[in-house]
Design a protein around this nucleic acid. Structure first.
Length: 878
DNA sequence: TTACTCACG
DNA sequence: ACGTACGTGAGTAAA
């Protein structure tokens, strides 16, 4: 590698390239101040790539100085056709220059000249001075500058794909010298720079002529050798234009540049400034790549063992981080822990130490406020050690989730960086990824990492609490989310008993039936194939059997249920496939899937409720998911027979809210028509049917009309569109539109509410529930119709779905105290339903108590209604 | 890992 | 003209 290497960057061109490469996601790239950052981000990606490749000793970024240049003086319309630069890009230019400065690269511009001319001039000077020069641009015209020591790197579609043009490369690929590129442009003109060239001469003719004559001047010297009559006429006619165009295309390599090569030294990253800049731009990816050594706090900690527990001093608030290797904290092996009070930190791999004084005392007393990351995880982990965690006051994960559901993650390092704290390495970096993942054997590596986590938790506590307060979410946190974490932990630990034998016998019956359908399908198809492969199935149905294609996916034919249902009348194979699908789903997901996660020790499944995942405030359930156990078909519903009480003679008891989302809507919209119907305890879907179909009050509502009205009510809750309603109900889009219009006329405040939510989202960037739970909707400002519409529907739906989630969480917290002194246990939450087990004699109590606790969770403008069922298995609780 | 499909509220 | 219902998790195929 040459020892003098100059990097010249065409600043404007790269900024444009970067901006348009990320144009689709322009609204996703904004920092906390609302500044668009896409071009800055793309520019920096390019810098990363090129700096690594070139390793320059000198560097400069050239920018255009303004609209007026010597070229506009030559030709008024030069670049006259250019569209206005979008404001989203214009606002980024000052920051791009700041970025360059922080990366140790000077920026330069020169009145009356374009960036090209600066680059051309300096590249010639540098070449003469013995530099290897690399020019980075998005503009292919700069390849005219190629020479033995000047390489032009042209970024293609994005900012990472780059073509490297050397003089040889130009000759080889274009068959001309770099110098001849301007002759080519002179003849063919340039539509983007808006100069004409010669009439009717495009790239092909120009290429031919230049290869034949070498240059424009030589072409006109030998104009009689041009045989094509029309072409010759045009050439003669446009002689001046050709020469002008060539001049416009020619980069001025003798521009009066006032900066010297000796001033271009590449300084490298200015770490401190660059880190600050990345933080301001929210460039977490780039931040994580920086050597954040300066940011990594050095933490003093004491390694402790059983003999030195008495030396442990902890006073006041305590921070705990309990390390476990894996997501499933019911069984993940312990890695170690760190505990401290801000003054002293103690670490060990031996979690058994936590069982002894003084550590256990701090964790279980009423006086010590504990800070953690993920209280539920800590609670379950400590519970495995026989320690009842008490009095958590700060759960960093939970607070972060409440502040913004969008930038949440289970990774402490990521959460910390979202809140401006960069002193924690990610688990992936420390432990490795995938198969290579392992807990470090080296004590210092492990303990430094654990301790850095604890330090982050304690460092961010005040700041995040303050933000919570600014969001008016302190009550949501203290009275709902934090308490429910422990309710959920206890439900998870309790688990629900699954009858393994029941599942196994269901499984073998299913296997037989699946095999029968399989044979029938092979017969109908005339061959064997993998029915479970959408690809193979598509080939059989649509190529071999020539069934009509209803819908396509991006990779092939769609074979989803709604497609197959349309095809069913056409061929018997389709019904068999539907049945086969249904049964294999039950067998694989529910029989085999559940069997895999039953704990042999207690014959139970212990799900984990993810409390910080959904965008709406709902819970989700994993390992296993107990929120999607079949119920809609009886064959699937049989699975519920395997869910049984943990004691003989006990019952499964279940209560669910009726139409909780519609009731929430009736209440928060203030629509008195809808409220009246709920207050009169009417059948809401029938009432809606009467209204939208214009029936008299004594007319009978047929089941079909009720079904349609119910679909409209669902649609309303989801943020309706005529298209969506039509698709989901099979009615025409026109009818759907009529129903919706009538609906809004009948329930005017509902319409008003929907519009207000969208307006609120536009004005504030988020929507909120009755408890101030927020959902941010950055796409509400998107220029992309699809994204924006989606955000608008979400703005309508989230407060409804989220408020319903709030309500059941409150009910669950109240339920625990209501059940005190009883044997009954709360086992499951399925969004609007709670499932319990209880001895038979407590069932009459539950039948009164549970609905009472549930319907009094909050006070709405309409009553909440709760229905209860019970039986010896979950199946029977219907 | 991604795409598809399908189970639930 | 655009082209979707809202929120999830898990199994399988195919890369």
């Amino acid at each position: 590698m040459a020892d003098k290497r100059l990097l010249l960057i065409d600043g404007n061109s790269i900024a444009f390239k970067a901006f348009y490469a990320l144009f689709q996601s322009v609204d996703r790239f904004t920092n906390h101040e609302g500044l668009h950052t896409s071009a800055i981000y793309g520019f920096n990606t390019m810098l990363d790539n090129i700096l690594t490749a070139v390793q320059p000793t000198a560097a400069l970024a050239a920018f255009d100085a303004g609209k007026v240049t010597f070229r506009t003086k030559l030709y008024d319309d030069y670049k006259g056709d250019r569209k206005k630069t979008p404001t989203e890009l214009i606002e980024q230019f000052p920051y791009i220059k700041e970025l360059l400065k922080d990366r140790g690269i000077k920026s330069y511009e020169l009145a009356n000249y374009e960036a090209d001319d600066i680059i051309g001039t300096l590249s010639k000077q540098a070449e003469a001075a013995g530099y290897e020069v690399t020019i980075v641009t998005g503009d292919r015209d700069l390849t005219q500058l190629c020479s033995d020591h000047v390489t032009v790197s042209v970024s293609k579609t994005g900012v990472s794909e780059i073509d490297h043009y050397t003089a040889d490369y130009v000759k080889e690929h274009l068959g001309i010298t770099p110098k001849q590129i301007i002759d080519l442009k002179g003849l063919q003109g340039d539509t983007s720079d808006n100069y004409p060239g010669v009439t009717k001469v495009g790239p092909k003719t120009a290429d031919k002529l230049i290869k034949q004559f070498g240059s424009i001047e030589n072409l006109y010297d030998h104009i009689d050798e041009v045989t094509a009559k029309k072409l010759k006429e045009h050439l003669i006619e446009d002689h001046d234009q050709a020469l002008l165009s060539k001049r416009l295309a020619t980069i001025d390599c003798n521009a009066p540049v006032t900066i010297g090569l000796d001033e271009l030294e590449y300084m490298g990253n200015q770490d401190e400034a660059l880190i600050a800049f990345y933080k301001r731009m929210n460039f977490n990816k780039f931040l994580s790549q920086m050597n954040l050594q300066s940011e990594m706090p050095t933490i003093e900690y004491t390694m402790i063992d059983a003999d030195h527990l008495n030396d442990v001093k902890l006073s006041g608030a305590v921070t705990l981080y309990l390390g476990m290797d894996g997501d499933n904290y019911h069984q993940a092996p312990f890695v170690g822990f760190v505990i401290g009070d801000g003054d002293h930190w103690y670490v060990s791999r031996d979690v058994e130490l936590l069982k002894s004084a003084p550590l256990k005392d701090r964790l279980t007393d009423d006086q010590t406020p504990i800070s953690v990351f993920d209280a539920k995880r800590a609670y379950v982990g400590l519970n495995r050690l026989g320690i009842k965690l008490n009095h958590v006051d700060f759960d960093m994960l939970l607070v972060s989730y409440l502040l913004n559901t969008n930038d949440n993650s289970n990774d402490l390092s990521k959460v910390a960086s979202k809140h401006g704290y960069y002193g924690v390495k990610s688990d992936d970096d420390v432990y490795g990824k995938g198969a290579k993942r392992s807990i470090p054997e080296d004590d210092q590596t492990l303990f430094d990492h654990l301790a850095s986590k604890a330090l982050a938790i304690s460092a961010l506590k005040d700041k995040m609490f303050k933000e919570l307060d600014e969001h008016d979410q302190t009550r949501l946190y203290q009275e709902i989310e934090l308490p429910i974490a422990f309710v959920l932990a206890r439900m998870e630990i309790q688990g629900i008993t699954v009858n393994r034998d029941q599942l196994i016998s269901m499984g073998s019956k299913l296997s037989e039936r699946i095999a029968e359908y399989e044979q029938a399908i092979y017969n109908d198809a005339g061959q064997e194939f993998n029915i479970g492969s959408p690809k193979q199935l598509g080939e059989i149905l649509f190529e071999k059997l020539h069934l009509p294609v209803i819908k396509r996916t991006k990779t092939g034919y769609s074979t989803s249920v709604d497609v197959l249902e349309k095809l069913a009348p056409e061929a018997p194979i389709v019904d068999n496939i539907l049945k086969y699908r249904q049964l294999s789903k039950i067998a694989s997901t529910y029989v085999d899937g559940l069997l895999k996660v039953i704990y042999p020790s207690d014959n139970k499944v212990h799900t984990r409720y993810l409390q910080t995942l959904t965008q709406t405030g709902r819970l989700s359930s994993v390992d296993p998911n107990l929120q999607n156990i079949p119920i809609r078909t009886d064959e699937g519903r049989q699975i519920r027979r395997a869910f049984v009480p943990s004691h003989p003679g006990w019952q499964i008891f279940s209560s669910d809210y009726s139409q909780i989302e519609l009731r929430v809507l009736a209440s928060i919209s203030g629509d008195t028509n809808m409220q009246d119907e709920f207050n009169h305890n009417d059948d809401i879907h029938a009432s809606t049917a009467r209204r939208i179909f214009g029936l008299q009050s004594n007319d009978e509502v047929t089941p079909e009309l009720r079904r349609q009205a119910k679909a409209v009510n669902f649609g309303i809750v989801y943020g309706i569109s005529d298209f969506g309603l039509a698709k989901n109900t099979g009615i025409s889009r026109k009818d759907a539109k009529q129903f919706i219009d009538k609906y809004f006329a009948e329930y005017p405040k509902v319409n008003e509410y929907m519009q207000n939510e969208v307006k609120f989202a536009h004005a504030n960037g988020f929507v909120e529930t009755i408890t101030h739970r927020r959902r941010y909707l950055p796409d509400i400002h998107s220029r992309n119709f699809h994204q924006r519409s989606f955000a608008e529907r979400t703005a309508m739906n989230s407060p409804i779905q989220g408020s319903a989630a709030d309500i059941i969480k409150i009910a669950m917290i109240n339920m625990e105290s209501a059940l005190a002194g009883m044997q009954a246990k709360m086992l499951l939450q399925i969004h609007d339903e709670l499932v319990f087990e209880a001895p038979a004699e407590e069932i009459p109590v539950l039948e009164k108590l549970v609905p009472k606790v549930m319907d009094s969770a909050v006070k709405l403008q309409v009553p909440l209604r709760v229905a209860s069922h019970h039986g010896p298995t979950w199946y029977d609780a219907k």
